[in-house]
Design a protein around this nucleic acid. Structure first.
Lengths: 250, 250
DNA sequence: ACCATAGTATGGTCTGACCATATTCCCTCA
DNA sequence: TGAGGGAATATGGTCAGACCATACTATGGT
């Protein structure tokens, strides 16, 4: 007698999520639309308010709903779309669990940033945000301040690529690496090398030189995180394809 | 009278998460370790069990804890690390909200897959999983079956890159695109072109040809998703850097 | 017309109970 | 002595009901 299937009870809050997701798909709900109140939802779905609340916590964690207390048109649960927040939490926790190494995160950042810079160069996007961030970086006095505008510069590159998914990934990767970035800047002491990299990246993007932008990004990250692997696409630099690991992280 | 700060009460479940995260960092908790029971945790943290449960739902959503009912050494909450599951939920929901386009997801997949293939080629990883998936694809009879082994092939490429973060991204991207992949295979009817691409990718990786592997991946995705943008790194193909969009998605 | 107050709907929190599940313990019986 | 089977128990899952803080809304008095 085959055909057995694991019991796999679906929990109440999972049903709630599934039904909300189904209404998003069927009714075409989108960002800005509001969900019924927790009590009303509980009654309609025949579950307890606790289960509705657990579903809300999940959806909030995934960056698709936001809840406001009080009363009025702005109160209650509202559909949003903030994938970067969820990604940041994800990376932070898995880094803390030591199940992702800093080298893997930096490698991923290099991948995304090269791709973004190349795309931004190839399609001539709006570069005012990048330029403004460059100027603010020059005027910075502390490492924290520098890193803040440095982040803005690199995020501007990601946004210039026109892809919201890779931009969200970039945002959350930067967020996870912020503490290391500050340490790296303080360790270097002098930011002139980093700024030279930035201007080289900026020039390449302005000139529409995709390959040059990618190369500049790689040189920049290599300076900020010495010991990290190179992109194997740059095969002219040699056959050494060893997957490098950070030798200094603090 | 300045110095006011927004009230921003932190909710109870957020405190619970913060304290669990702090214990992960301080006590060096890692995958496989167990958390106290919900009742015990509630008592220790002086919050209600509901708040502890909401925190658990969040951590479960982020792929860092897993709960088992019953009694014994396997019961209770256990630390895990499954970022891919969380990423899949994230992509699925944000795609449903129409706040991410299919083109953005496919672009991101092209980025990760080119990077993975290039890395895999450059560092000569274990290729048995890729080879096995290729053989199974050849033996497939239905589109679903083909896509299943096709996924295994592409995930094997990601794993061969040696980066768990990009592998998790690849897994979740494939998961989100599964329905479209099946449709694309059925639309094409003939899978010989796709298989030729696969063998070309495989040959390039085996030969350690990073640039060739990246080019083969791009050609493959271009065939599977016609109308998607090319990588601007391939500048020898022409100055057209237009960010292409899918013209057929069903 | 304006402002203060009561009303009310919202999410946030807590308590306590009960259920289903799965292990552990221990007693009974062969 | 061993094995089988039920009771005890600890776990997460669910529910009901209450109370609080918040923030808008309606009402009434000035």
């Amino acid at each position: 007698m085959g055909g057995w299937q694991p019991v796999r009870r679906t929990r109440a809050f999972e049903d709630v999520i599934a039904q909300i997701e189904r209404r998003i798909a069927d009714d075409g709900l989108t960002v800005g639309d509001r969900l019924p109140g927790e009590r009303q939802l509980a009654e309609q779905l025949r579950v307890s308010r606790s289960s509705v609340r657990e579903a809300m916590r999940v959806l909030e964690t995934l960056g698709v709903v936001s809840s406001q207390v009080g009363r009025g048109p702005d109160a209650g649960a509202c559909l949003i779309s903030r994938p970067a927040d969820a990604l940041s939490d994800l990376l932070r926790l898995h880094l803390g669990l030591s199940n992702l190494s800093l080298a893997e995160v930096v490698d991923a950042r290099l991948m995304i940033e090269q791709w973004s810079a190349a795309h931004a160069a190839a399609q001539g996007a709006d570069l005012s945000a990048m330029t403004a961030a460059l100027e603010r970086m020059d005027a910075s006095t502390t490492a924290e301040e520098f890193v803040e505008h440095d982040t803005a510069f690199h995020v501007a590159i990601a946004e210039a690529s026109g892809n919201r998914l890779t931009t969200a990934m970039m945002l959350s990767l930067r967020d996870s690496l912020r503490r290391y970035a500050v340490g790296a800047v303080e360790r270097l002491g002098d930011t002139s090398g980093l700024m030279a990299d930035h201007h080289r990246i900026h020039r390449a993007i302005v000139a529409g030189d995709a390959a040059g932008a990618a190369a500049a990004v790689e040189a920049h990250l290599l300076r900020a995180y010495p010991g990290i692997s190179r992109s194997p696409r740059a095969e002219e630099e040699g056959p050494d394809g060893q997957h490098g690991r950070l030798d200094r992280v603090g």
